[in-house]
Amino acid sequence: MSNERLVTVTVNGERRSALAEPRTLLVDFIRHGLGLTGTHVGCEQGGCGACTVVLDGELALACCTLAVQADGATLQTVEGLAPAPDRLHPLQSAFQAEHGLQCGYCTPGMLIAADDLLRRTPDPTEQEIRSHLSGNVCRCTGYTGIVAAVQTAARNLRAQATETRGVTAS
């Protein structure tokens, strides 16, 4: 298409460029332009949170954002969560341990939203967890395992932080 333009983003720490039409949704750009298919499309109506990503430090619905709006921005997607190819992020481990996923379709958006919560609120109450994740629909779990997973991850991350501080201090 003649009206395509180059959109450049820093995604998961890597500078990437791809073509997008002015009307291309950010989620389509991420999935098909950048090949990061971990971010899912659930509704294209802003109603389910499956496409949740971090855009310049804030949670964003990539289905209700245009790719051109993200030109020059910093993005984080689920692919950027794990610290290493052979290691899971504590949130990811906790989701496995607490059976916080079944079909896995909502999981990337759910993890991104939960990570955002724990960065801001390391020791959230159940109500804070439920409130923060209320924009992310899971049709499989009834959220019981998800809430438990975020609680577990919060605990493990706090313990990790204490350990790190201890190591630094000594």
Binding site: T37, G38, A82, L88, P108
Partner: peptide, 21 residues
Amino acid sequence: VLRVEDPAFLRGRAAFIDDIA
């Protein structure tokens, strides 16, 4: 037993129908 299928979903590596291209 923890699910063996989970890591692929947790990393965004599982292929759903729209990922078939």
